[in-house]
Design a binder for these strands. Structure first.
Lengths: 314, 314
DNA sequence: CGGGTCCCTTCAGCCGTGGTTAAGCTGTGC
DNA sequence: GCACAGCTTAACCACGGCTGAAGGGACCCG
């Protein structure tokens, strides 16, 4: 009998694209994953991986097996859900969330949720969109909070439904006093000669910076890659470069930076995902309502009109 | 994640009705099975077994979980089949067979099969009808050779198809020189005062002896339980009692016994089972043809008419 | 009513599997 | 050419699972 834990490793490698990433995601060392996959290949009696010294790719047989693995894992998760229900334990809503949402919106939303729906336990795991959606499909999660950047579409996942929660324009983060910060909104073209900071290849928005700049007509000079927005702001404050950032990534502003809107600039969207037909599952409507309320009541970084914003707090 | 090996144990317990039987069937000690099931119950957080000191029964939650287990195991077996096919290895036909067929018909049939279909490897495991059919459904087997006794119907298995291979009348095995052996065919009613030998409760035909005798109007006095036909014949030869037996169980006749047909007596049927729609899978038509040919060419124990039998070998 | 049996469980101990860390190997990028 | 990144291999270690023996409660029998 094929070992399901090994199938899970294979599936994770397929999802992440490398043994190291899969190991990291599952909490193992690459060595362990490599060894287990080797054993899986022996069991399978077919090569499952094309191994380069610096990369692995799945063979067709490997992909085929991943499909089976997904089915098995999904049924297993279904059994667990069934068991939880039977056991009469408090229902649990398992949420996967991208980091920005987890740090900006979720604390408040969780409070609202706890008040609105006290009989459902919530668990939250930080996960990138790809991982969240895959785990959603395989029933390891019930709800995913993901983002999608202009020009970097989300992978289409069958049997999942997406719901737009928020569309936020991307901002430019500049060193305080930067000439471009004099204008109320910057034009991307004015930053063609800057040095840029973007996120690492681990992140789903890695590609965004280059695409947005190309769309504005120039190839960005990228010198730094950081996923942490605080680290990025420190770098900007020190004059190392400029960077894109969404509002939700700028909850703690470094005083050494200036944030400006982009004229006709790109946007990103925050979306909720759930399995098709489960929009009404325990906790999901309440959690979506809680997040939506949080979004509605938060302070805008750049009020639509200064007058209107002032009028809002008398 | 639920442990699939434990699910397999649970499923086997459900199938066999006891931990001891499940352990035996899977090649473990009862102790191991008991411990693993205890852990499974901890994982599940629901009682899965109603434990008496002398028995276990599944709880509703247990049965529910078994359904999931079957689905998981089936998908896993499907994955394995897929891999075998991809690997380009010789296709393999996995046959489950009841003992009598395995010892009487299969040796010859396997020879015919090897000649007719040399590119398919065959594996045979001895298994009772219940086990065979369950493993067939979960794709651990491809073909099952089972029996069904009058009055002891086979469990109905969804998604399986049955095909009658042979209907054979049951015989009576008597001590040589027994008064009833004077007649060409015995009547069951004449044996109402005999001591009977039947198979053990492990066997699927355990119930048959009592039911057949009751149908003939008497309650049999059962004193011995043996599954092995040679052991049973020894017992009969020593005068311990009488027993039912099918022709296929009497390939090696003990000279101390006499075998007689039963007037208007019960029958048993040999059937082949395969998954619905897989009648044409590699090796299945050939194997069924091989068994059918073997049946057609074997020596009948009691020729329909003595004259016809003699005419057959000039 | 008491001994025997059967089945399940518990306990103690061993072994194997699977994990870790560390070192080795090999293409890629600067 | 060197450093780096990622996969593999080797050696070590710990935990988990299996075994065997002992214990305990129903059911059967005499």
């Amino acid at each position: 009998m094929l070992d399901v834990r090994r199938l899970r490793l294979l599936r994770e490698v397929a999802l992440r694209g490398s043994i190291a990433a899969a190991a990291e995601s599952l909490g193992f060392t690459p060595s362990a994953v490599s060894q287990q996959l080797a054993k899986l290949e022996v069991e399978a009696e077919v090569p499952l991986l094309d191994r380069g010294p610096r990369s692995v790719r799945l063979t067709p047989a490997g992909w085929r097996l991943v499909e089976h693995a997904e089915a098995v894992l999904e049924r297993l998760a279904e059994a667990e859900a069934d068991l939880r229900e039977i056991s009469g334990a408090r229902p649990v809503l398992r949420v996967g969330s991208v980091t920005t949402v987890a740090v900006s919106l979720l604390p408040d939303a969780l409070g609202r949720f706890a008040a609105a729906c006290p009989d459902v336990d919530v668990t939250v795991v930080e996960a990138d969109p790809r991982g969240s959606l895959a785990r959603l499909r395989s029933r390891e999660l019930d709800l995913a909070l993901v983002f999608e950047y202009d020009g970097v579409p989300l992978p289409v996942e069958p049997r999942l439904e997406l719901e737009l929660l928020l569309e936020e324009p991307m901002r430019i983060v500049l060193q305080a006093g930067h000439p471009a910060s004099a204008r109320r909104a910057v034009r991307l073209g004015d930053l063609a000669e800057e040095t840029w900071i973007r996120s690492t290849p681990r992140s789903s928005c890695h590609e965004f910076t280059a695409r947005a700049c190309r769309a504005a007509g120039f190839e960005p000079r990228i010198r730094f890659e950081f996923d942490d927005y605080a680290a990025m702001q420190n770098l900007v404050a020190s004059g190392a470069g400029v960077a894109f950032a969404p509002d939700l990534g700028l909850t703690r502003l470094n005083p050494g930076v200036a944030v400006r809107p982009i004229a006709f600039g790109p946007k990103r969207r925050i979306l909720a995902a759930y399995r098709a037909g489960e929009r009404g599952s325990p906790g999901i409507p309440e959690m979506l309502a809680a997040v939506t309320e949080t979004i509605a009541t938060r302070e805008p970084l750049f009020p639509a009109r200064a007058g209107a914003a002032r009028a809002a707090r008398p």
